[in-house]
Design a binder for these strands. Structure first.
Length: 292
DNA sequence: CACTTGACCTGTCCGC
DNA sequence: TGCGGACAGGTCAAGT
Protein backbone atom coordinates (compact mmCIF):
# COMPACT_ATOMS: atom_id res chain seq x y z
CA UNK A 1 0.00 0.00 0.00
CA UNK A 2 0.68 3.28 0.32
CA UNK A 3 3.73 3.70 2.48
CA UNK A 4 4.70 6.91 4.23
CA UNK A 5 5.42 8.98 1.07
CA UNK A 6 2.14 7.96 -0.52
CA UNK A 7 0.11 8.66 2.62
CA UNK A 8 1.85 12.01 3.05
CA UNK A 9 1.09 12.88 -0.57
CA UNK A 10 -2.58 12.04 -0.03
CA UNK A 11 -2.55 14.16 3.14
CA UNK A 12 -1.24 17.17 1.26
CA UNK A 13 -3.93 16.71 -1.37
CA UNK A 14 -6.64 16.52 1.27
CA UNK A 15 -5.29 19.63 3.01
CA UNK A 16 -5.70 21.49 -0.29
CA UNK A 17 -8.96 19.91 -1.45
CA UNK A 18 -11.20 19.14 1.55
CA UNK A 19 -10.09 21.26 4.50
CA UNK A 20 -12.71 23.98 4.96
CA UNK A 21 -15.52 21.90 3.42
CA UNK A 22 -18.71 21.03 5.27
CA UNK A 23 -19.91 17.42 5.29
CA UNK A 24 -23.58 17.05 4.35
CA UNK A 25 -23.91 13.28 4.01
CA UNK A 26 -22.08 9.98 4.21
CA UNK A 27 -22.94 6.82 2.33
CA UNK A 28 -21.48 3.54 3.50
CA UNK A 29 -21.31 0.97 0.71
CA UNK A 30 -19.30 -1.58 2.69
CA UNK A 31 -20.11 -1.73 6.39
CA UNK A 32 -16.71 -3.09 7.47
CA UNK A 33 -14.89 -0.16 5.88
CA UNK A 34 -16.54 2.43 8.12
CA UNK A 35 -16.41 2.07 11.89
CA UNK A 36 -18.74 4.49 13.61
CA UNK A 37 -22.02 4.30 15.43
CA UNK A 38 -24.95 5.63 13.43
CA UNK A 39 -25.60 8.13 16.20
CA UNK A 40 -22.07 9.50 16.04
CA UNK A 41 -22.16 9.78 12.26
CA UNK A 42 -25.37 11.81 12.40
CA UNK A 43 -24.33 13.96 15.36
CA UNK A 44 -20.64 14.57 14.76
CA UNK A 45 -19.94 14.00 11.06
CA UNK A 46 -22.93 15.31 9.14
CA UNK A 47 -22.87 19.08 9.49
CA UNK A 48 -19.21 19.17 10.57
CA UNK A 49 -16.48 21.13 8.83
CA UNK A 50 -13.12 19.52 8.05
CA UNK A 51 -10.58 21.69 9.85
CA UNK A 52 -7.26 19.85 9.38
CA UNK A 53 -5.60 16.96 7.55
CA UNK A 54 -2.91 15.23 9.60
CA UNK A 55 -0.79 12.10 9.32
CA UNK A 56 0.91 9.86 11.86
CA UNK A 57 2.85 6.91 10.43
CA UNK A 58 0.65 5.51 7.64
CA UNK A 59 -2.55 6.75 9.31
CA UNK A 60 -4.48 9.75 7.95
CA UNK A 61 -6.51 11.95 10.28
CA UNK A 62 -9.16 14.45 9.19
CA UNK A 63 -10.11 16.62 12.15
CA UNK A 64 -13.67 17.94 12.28
CA UNK A 65 -15.16 21.06 13.85
CA UNK A 66 -17.14 18.81 16.25
CA UNK A 67 -13.98 17.61 18.06
CA UNK A 68 -14.37 14.28 16.27
CA UNK A 69 -11.96 12.97 13.64
CA UNK A 70 -12.09 10.65 10.67
CA UNK A 71 -9.12 8.30 11.00
CA UNK A 72 -8.11 6.25 7.97
CA UNK A 73 -5.68 3.46 7.16
CA UNK A 74 -5.38 2.70 3.45
CA UNK A 75 -3.61 -0.67 3.99
CA UNK A 76 -2.78 -2.25 0.61
CA UNK A 77 -5.26 -0.81 -1.87
CA UNK A 78 -7.11 2.04 -0.17
CA UNK A 79 -7.60 5.38 -1.92
CA UNK A 80 -9.09 8.69 -0.84
CA UNK A 81 -10.13 10.48 -4.00
CA UNK A 82 -11.71 13.88 -4.24
CA UNK A 83 -14.09 14.91 -7.00
CA UNK A 84 -15.20 18.49 -7.42
CA UNK A 85 -17.88 19.97 -9.60
CA UNK A 86 -18.01 20.01 -13.41
CA UNK A 87 -15.76 23.07 -13.71
CA UNK A 88 -13.16 21.36 -11.60
CA UNK A 89 -13.41 18.18 -13.66
CA UNK A 90 -12.83 20.12 -16.87
CA UNK A 91 -9.45 21.30 -15.62
CA UNK A 92 -8.52 17.88 -14.30
CA UNK A 93 -5.21 16.36 -15.42
CA UNK A 94 -5.59 14.07 -18.41
CA UNK A 95 -3.72 11.23 -16.73
CA UNK A 96 -6.46 10.80 -14.18
CA UNK A 97 -6.30 7.27 -12.85
CA UNK A 98 -9.91 6.92 -11.76
CA UNK A 99 -12.20 7.91 -14.60
CA UNK A 100 -15.60 7.83 -12.98
CA UNK A 101 -16.67 7.66 -9.37
CA UNK A 102 -18.12 5.93 -7.53
CA UNK A 103 -16.77 2.72 -9.03
CA UNK A 104 -16.97 -0.91 -7.94
CA UNK A 105 -14.23 -0.50 -5.33
CA UNK A 106 -15.92 2.51 -3.68
CA UNK A 107 -16.66 1.64 -0.04
CA UNK A 108 -17.64 5.05 1.40
CA UNK A 109 -18.76 8.35 -0.12
CA UNK A 110 -18.58 11.66 1.75
CA UNK A 111 -20.62 14.54 0.33
CA UNK A 112 -19.78 18.21 0.88
CA UNK A 113 -22.03 21.27 0.93
CA UNK A 114 -20.60 22.66 -2.34
CA UNK A 115 -21.44 19.47 -4.24
CA UNK A 116 -17.93 18.02 -4.20
CA UNK A 117 -17.32 14.52 -2.86
CA UNK A 118 -14.62 12.40 -1.26
CA UNK A 119 -14.54 8.69 -2.08
CA UNK A 120 -12.89 5.96 -0.03
CA UNK A 121 -12.05 3.21 -2.53
CA UNK A 122 -10.49 -0.07 -1.49
CA UNK A 123 -10.33 -3.07 -3.74
CA UNK A 124 -9.24 -5.55 -1.07
CA UNK A 125 -11.29 -4.15 1.84
CA UNK A 126 -8.35 -4.25 4.28
CA UNK A 127 -8.44 -0.50 4.87
CA UNK A 128 -10.75 1.35 7.22
CA UNK A 129 -12.11 4.70 8.25
CA UNK A 130 -13.13 5.27 11.88
CA UNK A 131 -15.03 8.18 13.38
CA UNK A 132 -13.98 8.94 16.93
CA UNK A 133 -13.39 11.86 19.28
CA UNK A 134 -10.22 13.74 18.31
CA UNK A 135 -8.89 13.33 21.85
CA UNK A 136 -9.06 9.54 21.50
CA UNK A 137 -7.13 9.25 18.24
CA UNK A 138 -3.78 8.91 19.96
CA UNK A 139 -5.14 6.06 22.08
CA UNK A 140 -5.60 3.76 19.10
CA UNK A 141 -3.54 0.60 19.71
CA UNK A 142 -1.54 1.08 16.54
CA UNK A 143 -0.62 4.69 17.33
CA UNK A 144 0.32 3.77 20.89
CA UNK A 145 2.87 1.23 19.67
CA UNK A 146 4.18 2.91 16.51
CA UNK A 147 7.77 4.13 16.37
CA UNK A 148 9.08 7.65 15.68
CA UNK A 149 8.38 9.64 12.52
CA UNK A 150 11.42 9.43 10.25
CA UNK A 151 11.18 12.75 8.38
CA UNK A 152 10.94 15.35 11.14
CA UNK A 153 14.68 16.06 11.30
CA UNK A 154 14.75 15.11 14.99
CA UNK A 155 18.44 14.72 15.95
CA UNK A 156 17.48 12.05 18.52
CA UNK A 157 16.02 9.79 15.83
CA UNK A 158 19.13 7.65 15.09
CA UNK A 159 19.58 6.91 18.79
CA UNK A 160 15.94 5.94 19.25
CA UNK A 161 16.00 3.88 16.05
CA UNK A 162 19.02 1.87 17.22
CA UNK A 163 17.43 1.34 20.61
CA UNK A 164 14.21 0.04 19.11
CA UNK A 165 15.74 -2.08 16.34
CA UNK A 166 18.07 -3.83 18.79
CA UNK A 167 14.97 -5.42 20.31
CA UNK A 168 14.69 -7.26 17.01
CA UNK A 169 18.25 -8.58 16.93
CA UNK A 170 17.10 -12.12 16.15
CA UNK A 171 15.22 -11.33 12.97
CA UNK A 172 16.26 -10.12 9.54
CA UNK A 173 17.04 -6.49 8.83
CA UNK A 174 14.17 -6.35 6.34
CA UNK A 175 11.60 -7.66 8.85
CA UNK A 176 12.97 -5.17 11.39
CA UNK A 177 12.65 -2.05 9.25
CA UNK A 178 9.17 -3.14 8.14
CA UNK A 179 8.22 -3.34 11.84
CA UNK A 180 6.24 -0.16 12.47
CA UNK A 181 7.18 -0.13 16.15
CA UNK A 182 10.84 0.35 15.16
CA UNK A 183 10.29 3.38 12.94
CA UNK A 184 7.10 4.60 11.29
CA UNK A 185 6.28 4.49 7.61
CA UNK A 186 8.65 2.10 5.83
CA UNK A 187 6.90 -0.51 3.67
CA UNK A 188 8.01 -3.05 1.10
CA UNK A 189 9.09 -0.64 -1.63
CA UNK A 190 11.20 1.66 0.53
CA UNK A 191 12.62 -1.23 2.56
CA UNK A 192 14.10 -2.73 -0.61
CA UNK A 193 15.28 0.62 -1.96
CA UNK A 194 16.89 1.61 1.36
CA UNK A 195 18.72 -1.70 1.79
CA UNK A 196 20.02 -1.49 -1.77
CA UNK A 197 21.25 2.04 -1.18
CA UNK A 198 22.94 1.02 2.09
CA UNK A 199 24.35 -2.17 0.46
CA UNK A 200 22.89 -4.55 3.03
CA UNK A 201 21.35 -7.92 2.18
CA UNK A 202 17.74 -7.98 3.43
CA UNK A 203 18.18 -11.40 5.08
CA UNK A 204 21.09 -10.25 7.26
CA UNK A 205 20.33 -10.73 10.96
CA UNK A 206 20.01 -7.44 12.80
CA UNK A 207 22.62 -8.59 15.33
CA UNK A 208 25.12 -8.84 12.48
CA UNK A 209 24.64 -5.20 11.46
CA UNK A 210 26.78 -2.57 13.23
CA UNK A 211 25.25 0.55 14.75
CA UNK A 212 27.02 2.61 12.08
CA UNK A 213 25.48 0.51 9.31
CA UNK A 214 22.04 0.71 10.95
CA UNK A 215 22.37 4.50 10.90
CA UNK A 216 23.28 4.25 7.23
CA UNK A 217 20.12 2.25 6.54
CA UNK A 218 18.02 4.84 8.39
CA UNK A 219 19.67 7.66 6.46
CA UNK A 220 18.98 5.82 3.20
CA UNK A 221 15.33 5.33 4.13
CA UNK A 222 15.00 9.03 4.93
CA UNK A 223 16.62 10.00 1.64
CA UNK A 224 14.52 7.63 -0.44
CA UNK A 225 11.22 8.59 1.19
CA UNK A 226 11.94 12.32 1.03
CA UNK A 227 12.72 12.02 -2.65
CA UNK A 228 9.57 9.99 -3.24
CA UNK A 229 7.35 12.62 -1.63
CA UNK A 230 8.84 15.13 -4.06
CA UNK A 231 7.61 12.99 -6.97
CA UNK A 232 4.20 12.38 -5.47
CA UNK A 233 4.85 8.83 -4.23
CA UNK A 234 4.99 5.49 -6.03
CA UNK A 235 2.15 4.09 -8.11
CA UNK A 236 2.20 0.32 -8.49
CA UNK A 237 -1.36 -0.39 -9.27
CA UNK A 238 -3.92 1.08 -6.91
CA UNK A 239 -2.19 4.04 -5.32
CA UNK A 240 -3.29 7.48 -6.49
CA UNK A 241 -3.13 10.96 -5.06
CA UNK A 242 -6.18 12.64 -3.57
CA UNK A 243 -6.77 14.43 -6.89
CA UNK A 244 -6.89 11.10 -8.73
CA UNK A 245 -3.48 11.28 -10.40
CA UNK A 246 -0.62 8.79 -10.20
CA UNK A 247 2.69 9.24 -8.41
CA UNK A 248 5.80 8.71 -10.48
CA UNK A 249 8.57 7.82 -8.06
CA UNK A 250 8.89 4.22 -9.23
CA UNK A 251 9.38 5.05 -12.90
CA UNK A 252 11.86 7.81 -12.17
CA UNK A 253 13.87 6.66 -9.20
CA UNK A 254 13.39 3.03 -8.16
CA UNK A 255 16.71 1.18 -8.36
CA UNK A 256 15.66 -2.37 -7.49
CA UNK A 257 11.96 -2.54 -6.64
CA UNK A 258 10.13 -4.45 -9.37
CA UNK A 259 13.28 -4.32 -11.48
CA UNK A 260 14.24 -8.00 -11.38
CA UNK A 261 16.06 -9.02 -14.57
CA UNK A 262 17.37 -5.50 -15.12
CA UNK A 263 20.94 -4.33 -14.44
CA UNK A 264 21.87 -2.84 -11.07
CA UNK A 265 22.38 0.91 -11.62
CA UNK A 266 25.61 0.72 -9.58
CA UNK A 267 27.36 -2.40 -10.87
CA UNK A 268 25.19 -3.76 -13.72
CA UNK A 269 24.72 -7.16 -12.07
CA UNK A 270 21.26 -8.54 -12.82
CA UNK A 271 18.75 -7.71 -10.09
CA UNK A 272 17.06 -10.71 -8.48
CA UNK A 273 13.78 -11.21 -6.74
CA UNK A 274 13.83 -13.36 -3.61
CA UNK A 275 11.58 -13.85 -0.57
CA UNK A 276 12.48 -12.37 2.82
CA UNK A 277 10.21 -11.79 5.82
CA UNK A 278 7.39 -13.35 3.79
CA UNK A 279 7.57 -10.56 1.24
CA UNK A 280 8.78 -10.28 -2.34
CA UNK A 281 12.25 -8.75 -2.06
CA UNK A 282 14.50 -7.19 -4.69
CA UNK A 283 18.28 -7.20 -4.43
CA UNK A 284 21.48 -6.74 -6.32
CA UNK A 285 23.31 -9.99 -5.48
CA UNK A 286 26.67 -8.28 -5.98
CA UNK A 287 26.13 -5.10 -3.94
CA UNK A 288 24.10 -6.84 -1.22
CA UNK A 289 25.94 -9.97 -0.15
CA UNK A 290 24.91 -12.17 2.74
CA UNK A 291 27.77 -12.86 5.13
CA UNK A 292 28.05 -16.62 5.79
C1' DC B 1 9.02 -11.90 25.22
C1' DA B 2 10.24 -12.57 20.23
C1' DC B 3 9.74 -14.80 15.90
C1' DT B 4 7.08 -16.82 11.91
C1' DT B 5 3.05 -17.87 9.57
C1' DG B 6 -1.57 -17.44 8.16
C1' DA B 7 -5.67 -14.56 7.78
C1' DC B 8 -8.12 -10.70 6.16
C1' DC B 9 -10.19 -9.67 0.63
C1' DT B 10 -10.31 -8.96 -4.44
C1' DG B 11 -8.11 -9.08 -8.74
C1' DT B 12 -4.65 -10.38 -12.03
C1' DC B 13 -1.28 -13.03 -14.10
C1' DC B 14 1.00 -17.30 -15.30
C1' DG B 15 1.39 -22.17 -16.27
C1' DC B 16 -1.03 -26.25 -17.47
C1' DT C 1 -10.59 -20.56 -23.02
C1' DG C 2 -10.74 -22.47 -18.37
C1' DC C 3 -8.89 -23.41 -13.92
C1' DG C 4 -5.76 -23.53 -9.96
C1' DG C 5 -2.22 -21.36 -7.56
C1' DA C 6 0.80 -17.62 -6.47
C1' DC C 7 1.13 -13.04 -5.61
C1' DA C 8 0.03 -7.87 -4.55
C1' DG C 9 2.00 -1.52 -1.39
C1' DG C 10 -0.12 -3.74 5.56
C1' DT C 11 -1.26 -5.15 9.89
C1' DC C 12 -2.99 -8.56 13.34
C1' DA C 13 -3.96 -12.85 15.62
C1' DA C 14 -2.43 -17.02 16.32
C1' DG C 15 1.02 -20.54 16.61
C1' DT C 16 5.76 -22.18 18.09
Amino acid sequence: MPELPEVETVRRGLARLVVGKKVTDVQVLNAKSFQASEGDAKAFLVGAEVIAARRRAKVLILDLSTDYSLVCHLKMTGQLVFRGDEDWAAGHPTDSFVASLPDRSTRIEFDFADGSKLFFNDQRKFGWVKLLPTAEVENLDFLQKVGPEPLTGDPELPKEFIQRIRRRNGTTIKAAILDQTVVAGIGNIYADESLWMAKVHPATRVRDVSDAKLKGILAAAIEVMTKSIKSGGSTMKNYIRADGTKGNYLDKFANVFRREGQPCPRCATTIEKIRVAGRGTHICPHCQRLKP
